[in-house]
């Protein structure tokens, strides 16, 4: 039947001449995905009693720790880490803030640079970076420490129960991955 031949012959030609246009599967070697994920982190709102001991005397250092419990997945692809800090200090005192990584036995293995000097009655927003060469500490750490140091006042002011003021600390972390 002519109609059938008319239909089937072109299809057979297509079928027998089947081919592929130029593709290069080696391009997969160049495939990469750069992405980042933000996570809310720690926050705290200090008032004067936070900086006093049981005898209501000013203390020099206060610290708190978060135990790391996330696994190592993503370790090979983590390119850098950024810590965003928003700090507002209405005390008439300076503070020094640092984020420190500790190993299993409590030894300090890494301090995120730079250590932040929080001036009296100030507001600051800053981003601290853990560069690619240091990201392994992020996974080696067992504890992440947040430390506020209260240096002696130049003016001789000390904090007591009646001192007004707050130190507000807010933070977030952004993990930058390069999947390639």
């Amino acid at each position: 039947m002519k109609l059938f031949k008319f239909l089937i012959l072109p299809l057979l030609i297509i079928g027998t001449q089947s081919c592929t246009e130029e593709v290069d599967f080696n391009q997969i070697d160049d495939a990469s995905l750069q992405t980042s994920y933000i996570f809310t982190l720690a926050y705290v709102n200090f008032t004067a009693p936070n900086f006093l001991n049981n005898n209501n005397e000013e203390i020099e250092v206060i610290s708190d720790f978060i135990i790391r419990k996330f696994d190592d997945s993503g370790k090979d692809y983590l390119e850098k880490v950024e810590l965003t800090l928003e700090i507002e200090n209405t005390f008439d005192r300076n503070f020094i803030f640092s984020v420190d990584f500790y190993n299993e036995i409590g030894d300090l293995i890494y301090t995120v640079a730079p250590v932040i000097n929080i001036a009296e009655n100030s507001e600051l927003t800053t981003i601290l970076e853990i560069p690619a060469e240091d990201t392994h500490y992020f996974y080696e750490a067992k504890f992440f420490g947040f430390t506020f140091v209260l240096p002696p006042s130049n003016s001789g002011n000390t904090i007591d129960l009646s001192t007004e003021g707050t130190l507000t600390f807010r933070s977030a972390i952004e993990l930058f991955f390069n999947f390639s």
């Binding site: 809310t40 926050y43 978060i66 977030a172």
Partner: peptide, 10 residues
Amino acid sequence: QLEGIQLLFD
């Protein structure tokens, strides 16, 4: 919902 970890420093 998660706003973060409220540190107590205690």
